[in-house]
Design a binder for these strands. Structure first.
Lengths: 204, 204
DNA sequence: GATATGTTTAACGAACATGTCAAACGACTT
DNA sequence: AAGTCGTTTGACATGTTCGTTAAACATATC
């Protein structure tokens, strides 16, 4: 896995592009081969089957998210202090791979039974996540269920990318630059919003 | 379109379920026919082609969203006052059709070029949306780009449903009831958050 | 009871998709 | 020059999918 042949890289690159855009069933092995400019049989040579090729792409996509969450988990910094850095990291990831959210969510929506194993493999311990969140947020003397705060933060970070075509057209008149710029603005906007929630009962 | 034969209804119902879950390419006409308990040829008899059947389902899915937005637009109530009702409406819609967001976003992500025409057909005038939003929010003496507020509200309402499998497993340990209950809680939570943003500069 | 209309069915044909295999190729070793 | 190894290719077998067509069926009308 560490050392990849040039052909293998081309395959992965093309498979990503096409799977991201058209989905697993919507993409044929021939499509990928054509996009990569190689013979279709090579896909089977390097990845055995379409399922395994898809799996490789899916895992790589998941892998772009996990480091962010993992970093948050392993950090000893309180949630509040860590928040801005986390948001920035997530949004930067999204700016680089805007198509990943839908791709991953679509796959998980089709096969929700995969979740438990994925959680396990990714080394995420739900209990620890909750513990961490509970501690970080409890220190802010807040009523809100920490899960709602987490969910809201993630929603604010990711959804605008998942809904890019809609947002771009309706809110930004198709001006891609304006859209991107707005997404970057959210790096500071979202922590403000979340802080506002968390500190609500303090100032009130 | 007003009057539908029983068979036609069965087809649409099955097509919705399967398209929502497995996507267009991932669902075969045979799958739909089997699910509906009818002969496959009937799908062609009533909808001519897979494309047209999918189109019918997609439009119906889009149609569940638009009334919410349209209502907001046509209403003369200010954005702030209308907010709670709108959020409740959106979340109720999501609770009823939790799979629609991914379905629609996946399709629009695959074919973003559809957006302009969809906007047109749905009778949404981006300029008027902005005007309305600008007015409603401007009255709150706020610095934020109204588009950021809109986008944030929608994100908070919809994303938790798009990410249901993930949220359900990681945050709610697979307890569906707890998840649903949390979603309902957001009906009051989200307006609080948005109000907090909008009124931030007033109280500050 | 024959006929017409709309619905349902089985069978067919063409196109496409996936995986395998044996042969060709290229580079490097002996 | 022969041989070996990994890579690449074309051809094949199998299965699936989609749309059409012609026939069967039902039901209502004359």
């Amino acid at each position: 896995m560490v050392l990849q042949t040039e052909t293998e890289e081309k395959i992965i690159a093309s498979a990503e592009r096409l799977f991201y855009q058209k989905g697993k069933a919507g993409t044929s092995m021939q499509d990928i081969a054509d996009d990569a400019g190689i013979n279709r049989t090579l896909l089977n040579y390097y990845f055995r089957s379409k399922d395994q090729l898809f799996e490789a792409v899916f895992r790589k996509a998941m892998g772009t998210f996990v480091p962010n969450v993992a970093a948050m988990m392993s950090s000893d910094i309180s949630f509040n202090d860590y928040l801005p850095a986390l948001v920035e990291k997530i949004i930067d990831t999204m700016l680089e791979h805007p198509q990943i959210p839908i791709f991953v969510l679509q796959e998980l929506s089709s096969n929700p039974e995969r979740m438990p194993q994925i959680i396990k493999e990714m080394g995420i311990d739900p209990d620890k996540v909750m513990e961490k969140m509970g501690k970080g947020i409890a220190s802010s003397k807040i009523d809100f269920d920490p899960r709602q705060v987490i969910l809201s933060m993630i929603s604010l970070c990711i959804f605008p990318f998942a809904a890019k075509p809609v947002a771009l057209d309706i809110l930004y008149g198709g001006d891609e630059e304006a859209y991107i710029s707005a997404m970057k603005d959210r790096k500071v906007l979202i922590p403000m919003i979340i802080n506002q929630i968390v500190s609500q009962n303090q100032s009130g």
